[in-house]
Amino acid sequence: MGSKWVSYKSNVWVDWCPGCGNFGILTALLKAFGELELDPSKTVIVSGIGCSGKLPHFVNVNGVHTLHGRAIPFATGIKLANPELTVVVCGGDGDILGIGAGHFVALGRRNLDIVVIMHDNGVYGLTKGQASPTLPLNAKTKALAKPNIQQALNPIMLAVSSGYTFIARGYAFEVEHLKNLIIKAIAHRGAAFIDVLQPCVTFNDVFTAEFYGKRIYKLEEDRLWDPVVRRAEERPTKILKAIEKSMEWGDKIPIGVFYIDSTTPAFEERLSDRLKVYPKVSPSNSIITTVDSKPIINNELFEKIFSEFIVKVQLNKHDTTVQ
């Protein structure tokens, strides 16, 4: 362990504003990778567009910096076609819950084994501070001319109802704590979501490091807090508890794991029920040509596979009509 994580840094200069919460998230991620000793060639970070979207370039594992809001569907294709890979999505709150909210919900419904880390800064950072879907009604951050006229949504609650099976909240400047959440999320089989509270020094003067510093506490400090679903029957009660906890937002803001359910089958398992050879044989490792670049389906196989479309002509011998 130790400083192994340093080798996961790429050579690209990190161009976020000094003091940005993203530095904490990046460091926690690097440390988690280091601790798990992930193979960089078997790991992918898929990001959207925004300040957070640049993250993959700063990490020395495969990186795919996609479209605004679409990191999740890109990641979905990557993971389904090569289920061997560890796939982590990084996106902003605007990216994931604004323009990309439909995909966020869809990933939960599929429970595909992907980790989504949401950089939750309450603002659209890279477009200069407009309100994001997590900025509360009437909040007035400094880039806003008037107080926010739209409400915030509750990301944890949305994740619960979408079907995510690992749901946590971290804080960008609790790096060790966040690192541990990321490790757990990667280890979890199924769709995992970490909402990371992330101070934006430039545009969000309401939800600052000082604001969070005074309020956050760790769920696991409460010895009675048990977010784990061990049997399917426990789901409803654990879901209600997670939702209840997610409404706690004021003088005290909880971070930690809200919900873990390992009783719901991951999408890969559902798929392998249908595609018996999957995930061992997958879209990315199955052969599609013969050695001489022919399709593996030859004429004979074609007729066997698609027999339902083939009609063997049987001329009517009794037909006396002329041609």
Binding site: V46, V64, T66, L67, G69, R70, I72, P73, F74, A75, T76, G77, I78, K79, L80, A81, N82, L85, G102, H103, V105, A106, P283, S284, N285
Partner: peptide
């Protein structure tokens, strides 16, 4: 998929890994 945006995005993702 949930929409056509996800359809093209995930198809691109699958292509990146060689499918």
């Amino acid at each position: 998929t949930e929409d056509e945006i996800a359809a093209i995005a995930s198809a691109i993702g699958a292509s990146l890994v060689g499918a």
